[in-house]
Amino acid sequence: MIRTEGLVKRYGAVAAVDGIDLDVRPGDVYGFLGANGSGKTTTVRCLLGLVLATSGEVRVLGQPMPKNAASVLPRVGALVEGPAAYGHLSGAANLTILDASGPAPQGPLGGGRRGRRDRVAQALSLVGLASVGRRPVRAYSLGMRQRLGLAGALLRQPELLVLDEPTNGLDPQGILEVRTLLQTLNAAGTTVFLSSHLLAEVEELCTRIGLLDRGRLVVQEDLATLRAPTGRVVVRTPDADEAHRLLDGRVEVREDDLLFVRTADAAEINARLVAAGLRVVELGPERRRLEDVIAERTSARAPGEVAR
């Protein structure tokens, strides 16, 4: 769905994006992670043809960008660096203008003026803004503006959603709603490219991860692979001393009442501990957290340093 080869974007001497090879497959929920200033937004802007790459190739939906923008972009919905709308108009009026501005092809994306009112109403109800009425966007809260931005992205039922920080400014309830919405859309066949710096959000939602560090893509992998079991079992027990003795030599690390045991078979460890009459609070295979992967793969940042 999205493929870049050696994508580079320089602003003067600084390479904001420095040779990225993205590969987003149909049906993915792709989590595009990176710290502030690592080049996420610049990459997203390159994908959408807003910023012209210094070198490298971009293909979206199999077609070169920005050359084929006119045929690619109607099939893509996007939220780039926060929502934007005309403050003096209502949410529905804003969506109407957006809908009327672009092409109106036939087919599933389709229709011109006739279906406009329905499309706008449907997009607004998808994001929970059906009942805001004629209030001008100026009077919207940050969360409502974010929802309106999402409605704009969903207006034409795109095959690909490119979302930059979609849950920014939403309350916990709103975050949950957006997550459910994206999961529903993905189940119905929409590919989602989600750029974010919120690990929890990406871990909940995404199937594949791309990790950006100072303009370079340092990880691009399935989330399941990244979080594969490490071959150790974690045991939490108040009887840690006895357990340590019982599991002689297989305990690799001990942190107070936490034991890290080298084995693939958690059930066997459990059986042995219980048979010896030891109390077990928690027991399970150790999985790497996304946070650990990121700490491992990205270069350390000086305190207070935001970007290069």
Partner: peptide
């Protein structure tokens, strides 16, 4: 300034 330019261009408007 309003940020609507980017949304118009990706709608897309040439």
């Amino acid at each position: 300034q309003a940020g609507t330019l980017r949304y118009l261009l990706i709608r897309p408007v040439g």
